[in-house]
Design a protein around this nucleic acid. Structure first.
Length: 110
DNA sequence: ATTTGCTCAGCTC
DNA sequence: GAGCTGAGCAAAT
């Protein structure tokens, strides 16, 4: 039985260094799926505690939705990121704090 | 800057 | 099994 993309996604989130964030697109590329699917997994996840979904941001640098239990907690996500040493430019994340996992795992040079 | 279209895996019927 | 939903992305306007 192959692991669901969900399972893989959660693992990838744990690979994100503290103080850094990832983009949905990067995760999607690794999982070989579309960015929307990635975002949906996070909200469909069973255990939000073990899942650092707040480390995932949009390509534009926006923090994304972050809906908990059907309730959007964008401010909570921002707060968590600040605690993680992530430099927030207003409601966005500094590009320097964004690490593209697809470049790291798949290799930037190809 | 805002709007529209596309993608596609999980959930519901 | 078929249809709907949606935590995004990209292009067009």
């Amino acid at each position: 039985m192959k692991e669901s993309k969900k399972e893989i996604l959660f693992i990838l989130l744990h690979l994100i260094p503290l103080g850094k964030v990832t983009t949905y697109k990067a995760l999607a590329r690794i999982l070989k799926t579309s960015p929307r699917v990635v975002g949906r997994m996070l909200k469909l996840n069973n255990k939000p505690v073990i899942i650092p979904c707040h480390r995932v941001v949009r390509t534009s640098g926006d923090i994304g939705g972050y809906t908990l239990s059907g309730k959007e907690n964008r401010e909570f996500k921002l707060k968590l990121l600040k605690l993680e040493d992530v430099e927030l430019s207003g409601d966005k994340v500094g590009s320097e704090n964004i690490i593209y996992l697809d470049e790291v795992l798949l290799g930037s040079s190809r």
